[in-house]
Design a protein around this nucleic acid. Structure first.
Length: 279
DNA sequence: CATCAACCCTGAGAGC
DNA sequence: TGCTCTCAGGGTTGAT
């Protein structure tokens, strides 16, 4: 499930290209919507009409959103659980039109003869075409890897609430980009229990958490994200997990058996010794 | 304000 | 082998 490092990896792929094909500078000829609910706004007919003719002038990431800056609008894409994007030629080697794959949902045809395909088996992903991206992204919390994001800022945000750390870190209004994997890994590295109440954290504990969050996210990006389940993106961060999906295996730090419990409706993995349960 | 259930979906894995 | 059942997971919405 794409989180900040995976989305960053995809953004770089779209921007810098792999086979020398980048989205930047390309003009959209038209679009196809194969599953209407994948388009959050506007209505599919307007979505297609407004996209046609626009030029992709830049590709960015904000939290877990991909942001395609177009000549007149912004196209925002959230991959949610199973979404993926690929760039491919419209025609195969023999010159025949390339067939769509199963679970392809939205297609942007490019004048260059290439196309951008949004594929999403579980249909949770969404696309927004908006004039002002603030209407969608406005409520997001700070980027944890931004240079200006300090431990003091995190302390302030944690102490504004009295919530369990796990659901708080997953809350995109508090901090943008963390998902289940990197939250579990960061809490383990920071030696904090997922049930720890945010308002009770000391300065030293917040400093540890701040550092841990940045460490796991940077390592995730360095490894091109994690490839888990049936979604393979070429990343290998999954090989360095300390706790995530390692229930019953041994903690790499202390050798204790990793436990799993549901916290805030999310499967949560932790080491009961490194991360002692608070009172 | 915090918590929780339901919802949106499909495929994987378990159980039979 | 092949069927049915359960469940994960991000985010939103509505109820408690």
């Amino acid at each position: 499930m794409p989180e900040l490092p995976e989305v960053e990896t995809i953004a770089r792929y779209l921007r810098d290209g792999k086979d020398g094909v980048s989205l930047v500078g390309q003009r959209i000829s038209t679009a196809e919507v194969l599953w209407e609910r994948s388009v959050a706004e506007p209505r599919p007919a307007e979505f297609i009409g407004r996209l046609s003719g626009q030029i992709i002038v830049g590709v960015d990431r904000r939290a877990k959103f991909l942001v395609l800056h177009l000549s007149a609008d912004s196209l925002l894409i959230h991959l949610r659980m199973s979404g993926d994007l690929r760039i491919e030629p419209e025609r195969n080697e023999s010159g025949q039109p390339r067939a769509f794959a199963v679970h392809d949902r939205v297609i942007l045809h490019l004048e260059s003869g290439w196309r951008l395909v949004f594929n999403d088996p579980r249909k949770f992903g969404r696309l927004w075409l908006v004039e002002d991206e603030v209407s969608v992204l406005g409520g997001l919390g700070p980027e944890p890897l931004a240079p200006g994001f300090s431990a003091e800022m995190l302390y302030d945000r944690l102490h504004r609430h009295s919530r369990k750390l796990k659901p708080l870190l997953l809350d995109q209004k508090v901090l943008a980009g963390m998902g289940n994997i990197y939250t579990d890994e960061a809490l383990h590295l920071a030696r904090l229990h997922p049930n720890q109440l945010s308002s009770l954290l000391t300065v030293v504990e917040v400093q540890r958490l701040w550092s841990a969050i940045r460490t796991v996210l940077e390592e995730g990006i360095r490894r091109n994200g994690a490839s888990i389940d049936w979604v393979y993106r070429g990343g290998d961060f999954q090989n360095t997990f300390s706790v995530y999906q390692r229930t019953g295996l041994l903690c790499p730090v202390c050798g204790t058996v990793i436990e799993r419990k549901v916290v805030g409706q999310r499967g949560t993995h932790f080491c009961p010794v490194c991360q002692p349960e608070p009172e």
